[in-house]
Amino acid sequence: MKVLIAGAGRLGTQIAQVLCAARNDVTLIEHDENRFAELQGMPSVHLVAGDACEPALLAGAGAPSCDLVVAATGQDEDNLVISLLAKRQFGVGRVAARVNDEENAWLFDPQWGVDVAVPAATPLISLIEEATGATDTVALLRLSKAGVEVIETAITEQSRASGHLLGEITLPAGTVVATVVRDGHPTVPRPEVRLLPGDELLLVSHEATEQEIHAVFQ
Rank of each mutant, 00 (worst) to 15 (best):
M1V: 11
M1I: 04
M1R: 15
V3W: 09
I5G: 01
I5D: 00
I5Q: 00
A6Y: 04
A6N: 06
A6F: 13
L11R: 15
T13W: 06
Q17W: 05
Q17H: 15
Q17I: 07
V18L: 11
R23E: 10
R23T: 01
N24C: 08
V26I: 06
L28M: 02
L28F: 00
I29W: 00
I29E: 00
E30R: 10
H31C: 14
D32L: 13
R35F: 11
R35T: 11
F36N: 05
A37G: 11
A37L: 13
A37S: 05
A37V: 09
E38L: 05
L39H: 05
Q40F: 03
S44V: 05
V45C: 03
L47M: 01
A49E: 12
G50W: 03
G50K: 03
A52H: 09
A52D: 01
P55Q: 02
A61N: 07
G62F: 10
G62M: 03
G62S: 00
G62Y: 02
G62I: 08
S65F: 09
S65M: 12
C66H: 01
L68W: 05
V69P: 00
V70N: 10
A71W: 13
T73I: 04
G74L: 14
G74P: 04
G74V: 08
Q75E: 14
E77H: 12
E77N: 09
N79C: 08
L80P: 02
V81D: 01
S83A: 15
L85R: 04
Q89D: 04
Q89F: 00
F90C: 01
G91L: 11
G91P: 08
G93E: 14
G93I: 05
A96V: 10
N100D: 07
N100C: 07
N100V: 12
E102M: 06
E103Q: 12
A105T: 04
A105H: 11
A105K: 14
W106S: 13
L107R: 15
W112Y: 03
W112M: 04
V114N: 02
D115S: 10
D115I: 07
V116E: 03
V118F: 02
A120I: 14
A121L: 07
I125M: 01
S126E: 15
E129Y: 08
E129I: 11
T137W: 00
L140C: 08
L140E: 03
L141C: 11
L141H: 11
R142V: 05
A146H: 10
A146I: 06
V148I: 14
V150G: 04
I151Y: 02
E152G: 13
T153S: 12
T153I: 10
T153P: 14
Q158G: 07
S159C: 06
S159Q: 04
A161C: 09
H164D: 01
H164S: 15
L165Y: 08
G167M: 07
G167C: 06
E168Q: 13
I169V: 10
T170W: 01
L171Q: 03
L171C: 06
A178K: 02
H185I: 15
H185T: 04
V188A: 05
V188S: 08
P189A: 00
P189R: 09
R190Q: 07
P191E: 09
V193Y: 06
V193D: 00
R194Q: 13
L195W: 05
L196Y: 09
D199M: 10
L201E: 02
L202A: 09
V204Q: 07
S205R: 07
H206Y: 10
H206V: 11
E207Y: 10
T209S: 15
H214W: 12
A215T: 12
V216N: 00
Q218L: 10
Q218I: 02
